[in-house]
Amino acid sequence: MHVLSIENITKSFDGLQVLHGISLHVDKGEAVAVIGPSGSGKSTLLRCATLLERIDTGSISYGGEPVAWDAPAGENGKAAKSVYAGKNELHAIRRRFGLVFQSFHLFPHLSVLRNLTEAPVRVLKIPKERAKEDAMRLLEKVGLSDKAAAYPFQLSGGQQQRVAIARAMALSPEILFFDEPTSALDPELTGEILKVIRTLAAEHMTMVIVTHEMAFAAEVADRVIFMDEGRIIEQGTPKEVLEHSENARTKAFLRKLSDN
């Protein structure tokens, strides 16, 4: 059973098609890096997977629990919009994944500790004391246990992003998505995020990382997916895609990156 199954999904914004039939299956313990030029649809793919956007057609499921599926074709033979599970089912499925945003989106009015405990306490109804203990353990893991009482504005960008990772982990998701986790950071701060992600990978956390940072893809990923213009162009081990790709578009993209 895949942790995440995405089957042939499409998505358009105002008539502009951003995803052209993407399929993606992620297994337990796998770390997948999604790379590609900006506008290739990687972030939209992530937003569809995390229910922030609704797909047009195709299907999504988590551990066999359906999120959305293809509707029977309409009378005119045209594919109708995918059908989504009910509100309660979707609410339950949201617990299965976590998302780390490019610009963190921490709650500025809550302390670092409360940022981590609020969802476990309110959503999972975990007792406050236990949620606090869990949160402290997570903060230790990301090297910020001394910042529990601080507020997000008092932290550096790298620290904020580490809090955001811990916040996502606080709900013990089966799969963790990262949407360009270092793009909003100064280059010298990417190292600390990479370190955290490496730790998670060593613990076999299932992850999908959309990134511009080739170090992430090369070091952490079991599989690299190259996307361009709303399609998956190729995928394979980091070595296959990043070093020995035969694909002209992949090679052009990688060349451009190394030129910069």
Binding site: T50, L52, H91, R94, F101, H105, R122
Partner: peptide
Amino acid sequence: MPRGQYEASAVLGFTRSQTFFRIILPQ
């Protein structure tokens, strides 16, 4: 209020009213 606050709340599984009263309104 930035949209990110709503999106972060949604992904964390907060209901609409939890999002409004606990995250949005205090700010």
